[in-house]
Every structure is written in structure tokens, then in C-alpha cells.
Amino acid sequence: MEERKALIKIKPKSYADGEIVKVDFMVMHPMETGMRKDKKTGQIVPAKYINSVKFDYNGKIITSMNVWESVSVNPVFTIYMKVNGAGNLKVTFTDSTGEVNESSIEIKPKG
């Protein structure tokens, strides 16, 4: 199973407890629709796209997404989240071929 490069960014960089922060989740993924033809071989490239993204904050799923092939290559998902104590934000993403990956970031509120 291929390791996917994924990145979670929290803005602003420094935040207090209770503050609403922006969470950018980026992942390197081809997002093949299953309708595109390979120009060299003339064969249809099989579909392979992310179909589920789950944001898990300290063991509680705060946001889940169903995704289809109309989302761009190397997708970016922006959500907002209320900081509620120190902990861990884990993003689990599954693609249509059954590939499961996850990425996480530590949540450290200031003060």
C-alpha cells in the first residue's frame, strides 16, 4: 500500500483554548475519475479517488466527509474547529480502491 503525503495546517499558528481555528487538510492524491484515457496507451485509467475523510479530535469525530471524483487532484479541504483542550487531531482518509491512510497533528492551546 502506497504511503500518501498528507499535511494538516492550523491557522493561526498560536491559539488559545476555546478559540475557533482554521484547519487546512492537504493530501497528494491523483483523484482519477475513471473516465480519462491515457494518451500513450489509449486505455482508460481506472477510477481511484478519495471517498471518505474523517476528522477525529481526541477520539470524537467532529467532521466527516463523503468525497467523489469531481474534487480536484491533490485535494485541499478547509474546515473550522473549536479548540477544546490539548490533544490530537487525526485525519483518516479512504480511497475508492480501499486504501486507508491517516495523518495527525498535536493541538497545543497557549496559556
Binding site: Y57, I62, N66, V67, E69, V71, S72, M81
Partner: peptide, 28 residues
């Protein structure tokens, strides 16, 4: 995307823990 072959792009399920109801992404 109303005229794509598959119109569905993203379905996001939120909870009050989000604080703000915003979804940002990029579509084809």
C-alpha cells in the same frame, strides 16, 4: 457541480464542535 457526469463533489457532515460552518475545497 450541476453539469458534471457525477454532480456530487463533497458532502460534509458537521457537528457543533466545528464552531463555524465553512467548507473550502477545490473541484473539477
Amino acid at each position: 457541480a450541476t453539469k458534471n457526469n457525477n454532480v456530487r463533489c463533497v458532502a460534509m457532515h458537521l457537528t457543533p464542535a466545528n464552531g463555524k460552518a465553512i467548507l473550502g475545497t477545490r473541484v473539477k
